[in-house]
């Protein structure tokens, strides 16, 4: 079945999710910088202006705070906006609307209203875009009650999770991975969705659990493949959504293998890996652990420009492999 499935890119999968939902629901619309005639800085919304028109694919001025705030206001009044931040780093300018407004309203207003909006952020390094266009800021949003946080690693997950995010009645921060936009993968022809809060075991194994999300998933799968040839069975668990988090699948895998390595591109200090480590350490899996929980993360450094430095700032297959070897000692 997998071999027969059509192959499309991560960017096309996101485009399909948005387009299908816009066909299905007249309240869904897209807004952001250069999402219209340009088709999005990374081509994600290519062709959507032609199909849906300028009323539903809205090119905005370079005004991230107002993009986010306009999405909040429209969501309060019955629309289901998808707002794009061209680079996830630009979300810093929109934080009031996300943190103080969107995340708070349902609770703060006593349940009178919900805020059904999706904020799509193009995140991560690997494109030579340097310190202000390469960050992985997902942990910030996880720290704010009232936001759901999704980081898809494959075209199939990106489409199914985005459909669920658009249909969700609450604000969802959807962190896309710039370096995955052109990667292809199998995506079903028929309509489907993937629920938020459900991890996916991307590879089954019994000796070590790698917990990874976003672009670290394909990296970890390659490392796991190498270890398989050496007779080491590596399980790769992709939480897919950080909030809500599928704690059961994570702890069950930790219990099974007794060795856990968490891999994320974001900086190590106060990164989401710390939360996952604490979760596993505080669970029934603790007594089954054969080694301390380890993390391989981005270094605590601004993403540098020069290619060798940029690669060195984030997890490499070598660092992941080395950590697995330490766990197996």
């Amino acid at each position: 079945m997998g071999a027969l499935m059509r192959q499309i890119t991560y960017a096309n999968a996101i485009n399909e999710a948005m387009s299908e939902e816009m066909r299905r629901d007249g309240n869904v619309f897209l807004m952001g910088e250069d999402v219209g005639v340009y088709g999005g800085a990374f081509g994600v919304s290519a062709g959507m202006l032609d199909e849906f028109g300028a009323e539903r694919v809205i090119d905005t001025p370079i005004s991230e705070a107002a993009i986010a705030g306009t999405a909040v206001g429209a969501a309060l009044c019955g629309m289901r906006p998808i707002a794009e931040m061209m680079f996830s780093d630009f979300v810093t300018i929109a934080m009031d609307q996300i943190v103080n407004q969107a995340a708070k309203m349902r609770y703060m207003f006593g349940g009178q209203v919900s805020v059904p909006m999706v904020l799509r952020l193009a995140g991560g390094s690997g494109t030579g875009a340097a310190a202000q266009h390469s960050q992985s800021l997902e942990a910030w949003f996880c720290h704010v009650p009232g936001l759901k946080v999704v980081v898809p690693s494959t075209p199939c997950d990106a489409k199914g999770l985005l459909v669920s995010a658009i249909r969700d009645d609450n604000p969802v921060i959807f962190v896309e991975q710039k370096v995955l936009y052109k990667e292809t993968g199998g995506v079903p022809e028929e309509e489907y969705s993937i629920p938020l809060g459900k991890a996916d075991i991307k590879r089954r194994g019994s000796d070590v659990t790698l917990v990874a999300y976003g672009r670290m998933v394909p990296l970890c799968l390659r490392v796991a493949e190498d270890f398989a040839t050496q007779g080491v069975s590596v399980e790769v668990v992709d939480p897919r959504t950080l909030v809500p988090l599928d704690t059961e699948t994570l702890t069950a895998s930790a219990k099974k293998t007794g060795r856990v390595l968490i891999v994320h591109e974001a900086c190590r200090t106060a990164g989401f890996g710390a939360e996952i480590a604490a979760l596993i350490a505080g669970s029934a899996a603790f007594s089954r652990l054969k080694a301390p929980i380890m993390r391989v993360c981005g270094l605590d450094v601004p993403i540098p420009f020069s290619p060798g430095l940029e690669r060195a700032a984030v997890p490499t297959p070598e660092r992941v492999a080395e950590a697995i070897r330490v766990l197996l000692k």
Binding site: F29, E55, R56, A65, A66, A68, G69, T70, A71, V72, G73, A74, A75, L76, C77, G78, M79, P81, Q97, Q101
Partner: peptide, 13 residues
């Protein structure tokens, strides 16, 4: 900008 969004919704709807 929340008011701007509310006005956008009014216009679209």
């Amino acid at each position: 900008s929340i008011a701007v969004g509310a006005a956008l919704a009014a216009k679209m709807k």
